[in-house]
């Protein structure tokens, strides 16, 4: 899932205040937490109320949603009939969705309503989202017992652990930040390579732990990437 976080409303309003008719487009695709129709309606009311409190009373918002904002065909067919009189679009999807809309509707200004953060998974009980994949392009989960050292190790080292692993804990803590980037909470984190060791030991595959891995070929993950669908 692509994890997104709502932008501060002040920032969204600074984009939208010059306009009168704004279409707020949710995405039913993979955004986590989901940014579907309800979120679009919520933002519609928030933006209108926020605009009113800031002295702009003629800003009107309409809410809609798209099954997958990263698909230009779906965006074009769903949204084209709804664009009558719209002078700006606020997208609630990830950065991919925003850019897709920009490409599909080059004549309408499109603004992001979310900050796209990472590819992650959701832990339901603690309602936390964890980064799980860096999209490095050459998956080595098969050799590391299914634990990703590229994502889980702050250094992303391939032959760990390093000297910062103390009692199985990483010297770099997890940091939870608020909208402004300020750290609100830090959580001790297990060393990825300690976990990999434990896991491989359990699987009776410590031979993989001893295997030497040369530095990654970073060309594979250099941006922008292009791929043909076959």
């Amino acid at each position: 899932m692509i994890v997104v976080k709502g932008k501060p409303l002040d920032e969204i309003l600074s984009f939208l205040l010059p306009y009168k008719n704004v279409l707020i487009v949710g995405c039913d695709g993979c955004t986590q937490p989901p940014r579907g129709l309800r979120e679009a309606m919520t933002y519609a009311m928030l933006v209108e109320m926020g605009a009113k409190l800031r002295g702009k009373t003629d800003l009107k918002c309409r809410a809609t949603t798209v099954a997958k904002q990263c698909d230009n065909h779906i965006c074009s067919t769903t949204l084209t009939p709804q664009l009558e009189g719209v002078d700006a679009i606020l997208s609630l999807a990830c950065g991919v969705g925003v850019q897709t809309l920009v490409e599909v509707f080059p004549e309408v200004p499109v603004y992001p309503g979310q900050n796209t953060t990472f590819i992650g998974s959701q832990e339901r009980e603690g309602s936390m989202l964890y980064e799980k994949c860096k999209a490095c392009g050459e998956c080595l989960l098969g050799e590391t017992g299914g634990i990703c050292p590229i994502t889980n190790c702050p250094k992303g080292i391939l032959n760990g652990p390093c000297g910062g692993c103390v009692d199985g804990k990483c010297e770099v803590p997890f940091e939870i930040r608020d909208e402004t980037g300020k750290v609100v909470k830090t959580v001790a984190k297990d060393c990825a390579w300690y976990l990999i060791y434990q896991r491989l030991k359990k699987l009776n595959r410590l031979d993989l732990f001893r295997k030497y891995r040369p530095p990654r070929n970073r060309a594979i993950s250099s941006s922008p990437r292009l791929m043909e669908v076959v």
Partner: peptide
Amino acid sequence: ERQVNAIKNLLRQVGL
């Protein structure tokens, strides 16, 4: 309670 706290956060940003 969790839901209300999330909404409070949104309202704070609007100015309510």
